[in-house]
Measured scan of single mutants.
Amino acid sequence: RPMNAFMVWARIHRPALAKANPAANNAEISVQLGLEWNKLSEEQKKPYYDEAQKIKE
């Protein structure tokens, strides 16, 4: 299954978030990633939607 825009973004940002929160488990990191993603504007998300579309094609 191809990655969606959030997954493209999260793949880039997960390592830094995990390093900054070494005690957090994957579920907690995923929740935090979701919160951070939701704070982004549509303009900030656009490159990730574009990349996800390329992956689908």
Rank of each mutant, 00 (worst) to 15 (best):
R1S: 13
R1N: 13
R1V: 13
P2F: 14
P2V: 11
P2R: 08
P2C: 10
M3R: 06
M3E: 09
N4Q: 08
N4W: 07
A5T: 01
A5E: 03
F6Y: 11
F6S: 00
F6T: 00
F6I: 01
F6C: 03
F6R: 01
M7H: 10
M7L: 12
M7K: 07
V8G: 01
V8M: 08
V8A: 04
W9H: 01
A10F: 06
R11F: 12
R11N: 15
R11H: 14
R11E: 15
R11I: 13
I12A: 10
I12S: 07
I12Y: 10
I12L: 08
I12K: 08
I12E: 12
I12G: 03
H13V: 11
R14M: 06
R14S: 05
R14C: 09
R14N: 02
P15S: 09
P15T: 08
P15H: 09
P15G: 11
A16L: 15
A16V: 14
A16H: 11
A16D: 07
A16F: 12
L17A: 05
L17G: 01
L17E: 01
L17V: 13
A18W: 08
A18V: 14
K19G: 06
A20V: 07
A20L: 14
A20G: 06
A20F: 05
A20N: 06
A20S: 09
N21D: 05
N21A: 03
P22Q: 04
P22E: 03
P22A: 04
P22D: 02
A23C: 07
A23D: 14
A23M: 15
A24M: 15
A24L: 15
A24W: 15
A24V: 03
N25P: 07
N25S: 15
N26A: 11
N26L: 09
N26F: 15
N26T: 12
A27S: 08
E28A: 10
E28C: 03
E28R: 04
I29E: 02
I29T: 02
I29V: 05
S30K: 11
S30G: 09
S30Y: 14
V31H: 13
Q32G: 03
Q32E: 05
L33D: 00
L33F: 00
G34D: 13
L35A: 10
L35S: 07
L35G: 03
E36I: 15
E36W: 12
E36D: 09
E36R: 06
W37D: 00
W37E: 00
N38W: 09
N38C: 06
N38R: 13
N38K: 13
N38H: 05
K39I: 04
S41K: 03
S41A: 08
E42L: 15
E42G: 05
E42S: 11
E43S: 10
E43H: 09
Q44I: 05
K45G: 00
K45S: 01
K45I: 02
K45R: 10
K46G: 04
K46N: 04
K46R: 10
K46W: 06
P47F: 09
P47I: 07
Y48I: 01
Y48W: 14
Y49L: 06
Y49G: 03
D50Y: 09
D50L: 11
E51F: 10
E51M: 14
E51I: 14
A52C: 04
A52F: 10
A52D: 03
Q53Y: 06
I55G: 05
I55L: 14
K56R: 11
K56F: 15
E57T: 07
E57C: 06
E57I: 06
